[in-house]
Structures are given as structure tokens and as C-alpha cells.
């Protein structure tokens, strides 16, 4: 089952199936990759925003926790289960 990172609920896990890099600016895309958000990375959604706002997201990528905004998370497709 595929979903996008932006729609995950806290606690849901999976791995990055595809990233639509065209929807992300070049430097921001590079920064995401540098932080390990690449195709095949195992992820878990940890937290979503505060108060009534659901932005940004805290995502565990490998052994790191990173913060990204919904706009970017919408470009990242997630598949269930961990990558080989």
C-alpha cells in the first residue's frame, strides 16, 4: 500500500518508495538527501505540528530525527514495510 508522507499518522512506519524531486527546490532537495531522506530509507512519522496546526512533521529517518514541512512531505511517497 502506498501513501504520501504528508498523510501518515504518528506511529506509522514505512520506507520511501519515490520522491518527486521536481516539486522541491534544488537546494532543499539536496538538504533532504543529505539528511537521509532518499528512496529506500526507512521512516517513521513521530509527531505532527502543535496546537491546531498540523505542520511541520517530525520524521525518523534511519537513526536521525528530522523536521520537514507538509509541502515537502507531500512529494514523498511511502510504501509499507521496511526496504530490503
Amino acid at each position: 500500500m502506498y501513501s504520501v508522507l504528508a498523510n501518515l499518522k504518528p506511529g506509522e512506519r514505512g520506507h520511501v518508495a519515490a520522491v518527486d524531486w521536481d516539486r522541491i527546490s534544488v537546494p532543499e532537495g539536496r538538504r533532504l538527501r543529505e539528511l537521509g531522506l532518499v528512496e529506500g530509507a526507512n521512516i517513521e512519522l513521530l509527531h505532527r505540528g502543535s496546537l491546531f496546526l498540523k505542520d511541520p512533521l517530525a520524521v525518523r529517518v534511519g537513526r536521525t530525527t528530522i523536521v520537514i514541512r507538509l509541502a515537502h512531505a507531500a512529494a514523498i511517497s511511502i510504501a509499507e514495510g521496511s526496504a530490503a
Binding site: 509527531h47 505540528g49 502543535s50 496546537l51 496546526l53 498540523k54 505542520d55 511541520p56 523536521v67 514541512r69
Partner: peptide, 19 residues
């Protein structure tokens, strides 16, 4: 500090800043 930035980001985004 980075947690505080996370909590504040939603509000800061509304005024065009980043956490």
C-alpha cells in the same frame, strides 16, 4: 531548542518565517 523551534514553526509559518 530544536523542539521549541518545532512547536513554534506552525505559527511562524503563518507569518512567512521558518521555525
Amino acid at each position: 531548542l530544536t523542539r521549541a523551534a518545532f512547536l513554534m514553526d506552525g505559527i511562524m509559518a503563518k507569518v512567512g518565517l521558518s521555525g
